[in-house]
Simulated assay, not measured.
Amino acid sequence: MNRMRATLSASAARRRAGVRDDPLRARRRGPCVASDCGGGANGFVDIPDSLSGEVKARQPLSDTNSPTAYQVTVEVGTIGGDRRGWARISSGDPVNNPVRKHAKVWMDWRAPQSPIQPWLQCGPFEVRHDGLTATSAAKRTDPSPAWQFRACGSMELPGSPVYCTDWW
């Protein structure tokens, strides 16, 4: 009973801190990893960390909505002849507030026909060096409103809250 109470308390504390529970991670009984979508897995393709596209959704990694804050975005563009979406972490002011090494970004993808429900988490991917950006792998887009992406990320400090865009 005490163990259950401690688990529930930890879950409630994470929600209060803005950390989103991930049902997929819990169901797998282990962390989601970049290999869930890297190297062509599950229809994703690897892309350069420097790639940028048309921004479809944006979320600052802070509660202040500062224009200089780190941000995660859902971006789309043409890759290998296909329209694809991906997540990207960057800074609103890369000169004075560069993204730091170990900041993380990932993309959640959901579709009714997906074998992984309620969504597949693509990542996390870490920023490799101070001042750089990072991207998730990219997934083909679809005109169906049920085929959706969102970008999530956290800053480089252990225990940093997770912020996610709205679903796009």
Rank of each mutant, 00 (worst) to 15 (best):
R3M: 11
R3T: 14
M4F: 09
A6S: 12
A6N: 09
T7K: 14
T7M: 13
L8P: 00
A13P: 02
R16I: 12
G18Q: 13
G18F: 09
V19G: 01
R20C: 04
D22E: 12
D22S: 07
D22T: 01
D22H: 06
A26T: 12
R27C: 00
R28P: 00
R29N: 11
G30L: 06
G30P: 04
G30S: 07
P31W: 01
P31G: 09
P31L: 12
V33A: 11
V33Q: 10
N42F: 02
D46E: 05
D46Y: 02
I47E: 00
P48W: 09
D49G: 08
S52W: 07
S52N: 14
G53F: 01
G53Y: 00
E54L: 11
V55G: 11
A57D: 01
R58F: 03
R58M: 06
P60G: 04
L61A: 10
S62P: 01
D63I: 02
T64S: 10
S66C: 00
S66A: 14
P67M: 03
P67H: 01
P67N: 06
P67A: 05
A69E: 10
A69R: 01
A69N: 09
Q71M: 12
Q71N: 12
V72D: 02
T73C: 07
V74E: 12
V76W: 00
V76S: 00
T78V: 15
G81D: 10
G81E: 09
D82M: 14
D82A: 14
R84Y: 14
W86I: 13
W86H: 08
W86Q: 05
A87S: 15
A87K: 12
R88S: 11
R88H: 13
I89A: 04
G92C: 05
G92F: 08
D93T: 08
D93W: 05
P94T: 06
V95M: 07
V95Y: 08
N96K: 02
R100W: 05
H102L: 14
K104I: 01
V105F: 08
V105R: 07
W106E: 04
M107I: 11
D108T: 08
D108G: 14
R110D: 08
A111F: 11
A111G: 14
P112M: 08
P112T: 13
Q113R: 15
S114N: 15
Q117R: 14
Q117V: 06
P118N: 07
L120K: 03
L120S: 00
L120T: 00
L120Q: 06
P124Q: 03
P124C: 03
F125R: 03
E126L: 09
R128Q: 10
H129M: 09
D130N: 15
G131T: 11
T133M: 04
T133F: 00
A134W: 02
T135M: 03
S136N: 09
A137Q: 08
A138E: 03
R140A: 13
R140V: 12
R140C: 01
R140M: 09
T141W: 00
D142R: 02
P143K: 03
P145I: 11
W147F: 13
W147E: 02
R150H: 05
R150S: 08
G153C: 07
G153K: 03
E156V: 07
E156P: 05
E156A: 15
P158A: 10
P158D: 04
S160F: 01
S160H: 01
P161N: 04
V162N: 05
T165K: 10
D166M: 13
D166K: 15
W168P: 15
